[in-house]
């Protein structure tokens, strides 16, 4: 089940929980914070959520992905608060009998997450400015 955390994402327990005897693929996707945006140097990112709605939306996404890609296991973890550059802000773990749907499901979950989950990201720049990332009107 999806989680929101204010601590660094620890992937070891996520991978341990993903092991399935009937599966030949476990795919771990990490979204990590980048040190630049449109030519400006980024020092850190800051994430905020409507936590109740975000958790509910992530759990709906997991359920939809489980059905759509016949996943044996799926979990999405999103970090909130300040995330230093190069650390993971989001992890998606899926397990499937064969590898193709594991890749497809990870991509689909990330694409949908960016449109459907009330989480916001603010970039703090080396030049002292800070801006909310231009996002998608929530669907």
């Amino acid at each position: 089940m999806a989680e929101l955390t204010h601590a660094p994402i620890d992937v070891a327990p996520l991978l341990a929980a993903a092991a399935r005897p009937e599966c030949g693929a476990v795919n771990l996707f990490l979204g990590t914070t980048r040190d630049h945006h449109e030519g400006r140097s980024v020092l850190r990112l800051e994430y905020e959520a409507h936590e109740g709605m975000a958790l509910a939306a992530l759990r709906v996404l997991e359920d939809e992905a489980r059905t759509r890609f016949e996943l044996a296991h799926v979990v999405v973890v999103h970090r909130l608060g300040v995330v230093p550059v190069a650390e993971a802000s989001v992890a998606v773990v899926v397990s499937t009998p064969h590898r193709a749907p594991a890749f497809e499901a990870s991509r689909w979950i990330m694409d949908e997450l960016k449109r459907r989950v009330p989480i916001w990201k603010k970039e703090h720049f080396a030049d002292g400015g800070a801006e909310w990332v231009k996002g998608h009107v929530l669907e």
């Binding site: 975000a54 997450l113 459907r116 009330p118 989480i119 916001w120 990201k121 990332v133 996002g135 998608h136």
Partner: peptide, 10 residues
């Protein structure tokens, strides 16, 4: 009532 600006998770 929640006011939710354009989202940018990930």
């Amino acid at each position: 009532l929640s006011l939710l600006p354009p989202v940018s998770g990930g």
